[in-house]
């Protein structure tokens, strides 16, 4: 007869702010990747839609990482100001939290620079995709500091890299965006030996796929409405999104499968995912983030671009579902995570 008891430790060490941070970090990295892809195509085509997507990509990537960084600070229960001392305090290079903080800082600086180079200067866009410049202009007028926009225009034109340096910034930015999303996964999977749901092999690809698909959804949806993006381009990016969603679904399935063979902690996690709030989150995430967007895309393909299902509203709703699914995934990973028990025999 097996004779043992299980001592379950505490759960729920993190709150919703961490889930929001992981979601925003993912979507920020994803938006950066979309902007980079659009920039690459834009350099080889004279379709202005790529420029709109690129500018919105940098702007949304910057906005989400700024808000995300604040939510990260909001989850800390210690003295708030202590976290701002991170350049001197975060010195443990075996901790993904310390490494990741520097990835976030470096990424934020790069995406801010890319946003300023793309939206300020002599050739600044007058259309809505030049939002950062419009905001600075409006703020300057209200606060009577009209030299601010001149300074940014002047600075953008003088610092914008060209030639090889420009290529380095492009490639380095993409590497940083991927690192940002991967680190948000590694932050969790660093303790995967204690938390079976945070599988160290599967979480990084899952986060990259989820962040990228949500990034595509957010950037393309905003550009679609703000700049009346050509529906042909929306369709192409939508297909890319679908491919990423399929990859995400496969990784998620593999992650759930690992829970069927992972001992007591995994079994309890699976119990949590198949009942109550955990089940709601799982079903919500799979429906909103994976199934419904793919069903809508398939229907659009079958019925053609003239059908009601291919309308701007339905396509935007599909992108909204992808973003919701990405957030539900982070909620699920934080709130259904269970630590391994101590086995008392």
């Amino acid at each position: 007869m097996t004779s043992f008891g299980l001592w379950w430790g505490g759960v729920g060490h993190w709150d919703v702010f961490v889930a929001i941070y992981l979601f925003l970090g993912g979507i920020s990295g994803g938006a950066f990747l979309v902007a980079s892809i659009a920039e690459w195509f834009g350099e080889r085509s004279d379709h202005e839609g790529y420029d709109f997507i690129t500018r919105w990509g940098w702007t949304l990537s910057f906005g989400t990482i700024v808000v995300g960084s604040w939510t990260l600070l909001a989850h800390l229960s210690g003295p708030f100001l202590r976290a701002f001392m991170f350049p001197v305090k975060f010195t443990n290079w075996t901790s993904w939290m310390a490494i990741g903080t520097w990835v976030v800082v470096t990424f934020s600086l790069v995406v801010m620079a890319r946003m300023i180079w793309a939206t300020f200067g002599a050739e600044a866009a007058e259309d809505p995709s030049g939002l950062p410049r419009h905001v600075v202009d409006r703020l300057g007028n209200n606060l009577l500091v009209d030299w601010g926009i001149d300074l940014l225009d002047w600075g953008a034109d003088r610092t914008r890299p060209t030639g090889l340096l420009r290529r380095l910034v492009q490639v380095g930015g993409v590497a940083l965006a991927v690192m940002l999303v991967v680190y948000t996964a590694l932050l969790l999977s660093a303790v995967s030996w204690m938390v079976p749901l945070w599988n160290e092999t599967l979480l990084p690809p899952l986060f990259v796929a989820s962040g990228f698909s949500a990034g595509i959804a957010m950037v393309v949806a905003v550009t679609y409405w703000q700049n009346d993006l050509d529906s042909h381009l929306v369709h192409r990016f939508g297909l890319l999104d679908d491919a990423v969603i399929v990859a995400e679904a496969l990784v998620l399935a593999a992650l759930l499968y690992t829970l069927t063979t992972g001992g007591y902690g995994a079994a309890r996690t699976l119990d949590g995912l198949t009942s109550g709030t955990g089940l709601l989150l799982l079903v919500g995430m799979i429906s909103a983030g994976l199934l419904l967007p793919l069903v809508i895309s398939a229907a659009q393909q079958l019925l053609g671009s003239e059908s009601a299902l291919a309308s701007k509203r339905v396509t935007t709703a599909k992108f909204g579902l992808v973003i919701t699914g990405s957030f539900l995934l982070r909620l699920l990973l934080i709130f259904t995570a269970v630590q391994q028990p101590i086995i008392v025999t």
Partner: peptide
């Protein structure tokens, strides 16, 4: 300590 609770996740003994 900044109160990040990361140690809470890593500790096998609560």
């Amino acid at each position: 300590c900044i109160g990040c609770h990361y140690c809470g996740w890593a500790c096998p003994y609560g």
